[in-house]
Simulated assay, not measured.
Amino acid sequence: MDTLKDVRPGQSVSVVKLRGEGALKRRIMDMGITKGTAVYVRKVAPLGDPVEITVRGYELSLRKEDAGMIEVE
């Protein structure tokens, strides 16, 4: 299964599942990234970290490590 860190800039995907537990998973959910949410990958920094996305109408930067916990299709 692909994760958000594997998605190329300019692609839109849908969140399938959040991995991880506790505070980290809660923080990702608090940012509006939940199952079924559409996510658009705007750009990825030259060294791959961070990943800039648009979710629920606002822009967000995620560390590559956190993006790897978000399964998408």
Rank of each mutant, 00 (worst) to 15 (best):
M1S: 09
M1R: 13
D2C: 07
D2E: 10
T3C: 05
K5L: 06
K5I: 00
D6R: 06
V7M: 03
V7C: 07
R8D: 07
R8I: 09
R8A: 15
P9R: 12
G10A: 11
G10T: 14
Q11I: 10
Q11A: 15
S12H: 05
S12I: 11
S12N: 14
S12W: 05
S12R: 15
V13R: 15
V16N: 12
K17D: 15
K17S: 15
L18C: 15
L18R: 05
R19Y: 15
G20M: 09
G20T: 09
E21F: 13
E21Q: 14
G22C: 06
G22W: 01
G22T: 07
A23V: 07
A23I: 07
A23K: 12
A23R: 14
L24E: 13
L24I: 13
L24K: 14
K25I: 04
R27M: 13
R27Q: 14
I28H: 02
I28D: 01
D30K: 10
M31A: 14
M31V: 07
G32W: 06
G32D: 10
T34K: 14
T34Q: 10
T34D: 10
G36C: 09
T37H: 04
T37Q: 11
A38R: 14
A38E: 09
V39T: 00
Y40Q: 11
Y40A: 10
Y40V: 08
Y40E: 13
V41Y: 05
V41W: 05
V41T: 04
V41K: 07
K43G: 04
K43T: 11
V44Y: 05
P46K: 08
P46R: 01
L47W: 08
L47Q: 08
D49E: 10
P50K: 06
P50R: 11
V51H: 01
V51E: 02
V51Q: 04
E52H: 10
I53F: 01
T54S: 13
T54L: 06
V55P: 00
R56A: 09
R56V: 04
R56G: 03
G57A: 02
G57S: 03
E59S: 07
E59T: 13
L60E: 04
L60H: 05
L60W: 05
L60G: 02
S61G: 00
L62Q: 02
L62A: 04
L62Y: 03
R63W: 00
R63V: 03
K64M: 09
E65F: 06
D66I: 09
A67P: 01
A67K: 03
G68M: 02
G68T: 01
M69C: 00
M69K: 00
E71F: 06
E71T: 07
E71K: 05
E71I: 08
V72C: 00
V72H: 05
E73G: 05
E73V: 01
